[in-house]
Nucleic acid binder design. Structure first.
Lengths: 327, 327
DNA sequence: GTAATAGTGTCTTTCAGACAGTATGAC
DNA sequence: GTCATACTGTCTGAAAGACACTATTAC
C-alpha cells in the first residue's frame, strides 16, 4: 500500500481568479499573443508550503501581485490525455482552485507580470444568455453535435444503464426537446464539445473526432493545457454557489447599489433576473443593510447604497440568493 | 513553471464507499483490532491508470472484491500535518472519493480481504438526530467547546474580518443561540472538534490543545491518517447532494417501497422527515414509478413497490428530494 | 375486533413570479 | 413637462408544512 511511485509526479496548482468590471465577469490570465493563453499556475512544493492554499496564495502574489480573498478548491484533474504536450513526465496532475477578488484600481503590476483580466465569456460565448439565446447554439453547436450523435459507434454499452447515450447527453447538457437550459451545466457542455471535437483543445490533444472534422470557426478562445476545463468548472461552481452561499459579495465593493449587485449576479449566471423579485429576495434574505448613503450618477433617481451583513452566515443554514429558474 | 519536484510525492486515492443496510448507513472500512481502522486506499500509478476513477475502481475491486456504481471526487487533501506518522516522505497527498453501492448479499469476499461495512455513525455519533438531539452534544461536546472558546489566544487577527472567531465558528457549525442545526455542516463540526483537540486524531497528530486537555471519553471512533476527515466530507457531500440529484437510488435495490426510500434518506440526513410530505415530494418530483408489485412482509398493509425513473435526469435541471428544513 | 403499517384528502402558510404603479433625479 | 432610473404595493398560483382520515394486512 505504501509503494514508491515509479514515475516522478508533479502537482500543479491552477487558479481561476475572478473579478467583476461593470457587467463583465473577468478571469485572470497569463501569456497570450502567439504563445497561447492560460490560467496562472505553479508547482506545489511540499517542503516549503504547508497547505495548498498557502502555496496558491504565495505564487499568485508572486506572479500577479494580487492578493485574493475567497479561495475554494474545485477539482483535481489527473487525466494524462488532456495534459501538457511538453512531454509525458511533467504536470501529470493539476489541482484547480476558484478565487474571488475585487478588480484592482491599478493594473500595472499585473501587466508587468504578463497577466491580465480577460472577459470570461470570450472562452465560453455560448454561456452568456443576457442578450437572449446565443445564435451560435442553433447555427453551429447543435447542428455539429447532432452529426456527432449520429456518428456514435454501435453497441458500445460497456457501462450498464448508467451511462447515457450521446443523444441523451446532448439533451441533458444543452436542453431542448422539453429539457430546459440549466446554466450550471457549464462543465458538462464543455466536456461534450471536447468529446465531439468542436473545441480547439480536442484537436491539439489529438482526438480522432477533431481530426476527422472539417475546419469550422473555433468555439470560443482556447487555453493552455486543461485550463479551459478548469475555468468551466469554476464558472459552474460559482453559478451554483451563488444560490446558497453569499459569495457574490466577495466580488462587490464595500458599498454598492442593488442594481449593481443584480448586474453582478446576472453576469455570473449569464442570464437576466426579474428585478422586483431580485430586490425582494435580497431584502427578505436580510443579506444587506443600507449604509444611508446614495449615489446620483446615472441620470435617474439616485440609488441607495448597501453593505453586506456578514452576520447572516451564522444565522441561517444556506444564505444565498436563491433566484429561481425563470427570468 | 515546470520545475522538478524536490521531494518525491505520492498520491493516495482514498474511497468512502457507502451502502445501506435497513436503516443503518454503512461505510466500507479496512483494518481494525489493534492496528486501527481506515478507509480503503491505494496509490495512484500514472503509468498504469489513465484516470483517477479507473485507478480507484481497480484497487477497490482488488482490495474488496466489490464493484461500485456511482463515483464522485470529493476533495484533495494536501496538509502535511494531518498525515501519516510513518515518516515524512510517504502519502503527502490524498484524493478523496465518494462511492455509492448496494450492500452485497455475501460479505465473505469482503471479510477475506479484511474489509467490512461499519455503521458510519460509530465515527460521528453526534450526527445522528433520528432519536432526537444526541445528549452528548449538551453533556460533552458543547461544554468542552465553550472552554476552548474561552482559551482563545488574544489579538490573533492575522486574517481580516473574513475569519470568524472561535465563538462564531462554534455557533455556525453546531447551531444554538438562534442559529439552527444544519445537517450538512458535518465537515465544519469535525474540523472544529479536531482543532479543539476533542477527537483522538488531534492528540495523535500532536496538537497542543489535545495534549493539554485532560483525558475524557473519545468522541466517536477514530480512524487512520485523515480518513475520518474524508468520511466527514463524504457524508456532508452526500447529505447536500440528496437534495438536488437523485443519488439515493444508487443505494436502493431496483424495486423498493416508499417507506424504505424514506428510511434511507433519513438515515443519510440523520433526521426524521414528515411522512406525508415526503411521499408527495417523491410523487410530484416524478422520480419513481410503480412496478405494479407489492410486498406483504411487515405485518401491516402491503407496500407497493417502485422503481427509479432514470429519465428524470434529462427532464429537469435539479431532480432531487428537496426536503425542507423541518421534520 | 386490535395492532400495525400503507396510503389519501385537504387546509393553511409561505413564497416565487408577475402585474402595475409611485418616487426622484437630469434635461 | 419628458425621459430614465430607483423603488413599492399587491395579486396569483405553486409549493411546504401539518392536520385528520381511510385502506389492507396479521393476529
Amino acid at each position: 500500500m505504501a509503494s514508491v511511485p515509479s514515475t516522478p509526479i508533479e502537482i500543479g496548482l491552477t487558479a481561476a481568479i475572478v473579478a467583476m468590471q461593470g457587467i463583465v465577469p473577468r478571469i485572470l490570465t497569463v501569456g497570450g499573443e502567439g504563445e497561447g493563453i492560460g490560467l496562472p499556475s505553479g508547482p506545489f512544493e511540499p517542503v516549503s508550503h504547508r497547505t495548498f492554499e498557502i502555496a496558491l496564495r504565495t505564487f499568485v502574489a508572486e506572479q500577479t501581485a494580487l492578493s485574493v480573498g475567497y479561495i475554494e478548491q474545485l477539482y483535481t484533474f489527473g487525466d494524462r490525455g488532456r495534459h501538457a504536450r511538453v512531454g509525458d513526465t511533467t504536470h501529470v496532475l493539476s489541482v484547480g482552485y476558484l478565487a474571488l477578488t475585487r478588480m484592482p484600481e491599478q493594473n500595472e503590476a499585473l501587466a508587468k507580470a504578463g497577466a491580465r483580466f480577460a472577459p470570461w465569456y470570450k472562452f465560453f460565448p455560448w454561456e452568456d444568455w443576457r442578450g437572449g439565446r446565443p445564435p451560435m447554439l442553433d447555427d453551429l453547436i447543435l447542428p455539429e453535435l447532432m452529426s456527432w450523435v449520429k456518428k456514435a459507434p454501435r453497441g458500445q454499452a460497456s457501462e450498464p444503464s448508467r451511462a447515457l447515450g450521446r443523444k441523451e447527453r446532448v439533451k441533458f447538457a444543452f436542453g431542448g426537446d422539453g429539457a430546459p437550459w440549466d446554466e450550471e451545466k457549464v462543465l458538462e457542455r464543455y466536456e461534450l464539445l471536447y468529446e465531439a471535437g468542436l473545441v480547439e483543445e480536442a484537436r491539439r490533444d489529438g482526438r480522432e473526432a477533431a481530426l476527422a472534422r472539417k475546419q469550422i470557426a473555433p468555439l470560443g478562445q482556447p487555453m493552455h493545457f486543461d485550463h479551459r476545463r478548469i475555468l468551466a468548472t469554476a464558472i459552474a461552481r460559482l453559478r451554483a454557489k451563488l444560490k446558497y452561499r453569499p459569495v457574490v459579495f466577495e466580488l462587490m465593493p464595500p458599498a454598492f447599489t442593488l442594481t449593481s449587485l443584480q448586474n453582478t449576479v446576472e453576469a455570473i449566471a449569464g442570464r437576466h433576473l426579474h428585478k422586483q423579485n431580485f430586490r425582494r429576495l435580497v431584502d427578505s434574505a436580510a443579506l444587506v443593510e443600507p449604509t444611508g448613503e446614495s449615489v446620483k450618477a446615472t441620470g435617474g433617481r439616485p440609488a441607495a447604497l448597501f453593505r453586506f451583513r456578514r452576520e447572516v452566515v451564522e444565522e441561517r443554514p444556506a444564505p444565498g440568493l436563491r433566484f429561481g429558474t425563470r427570468g
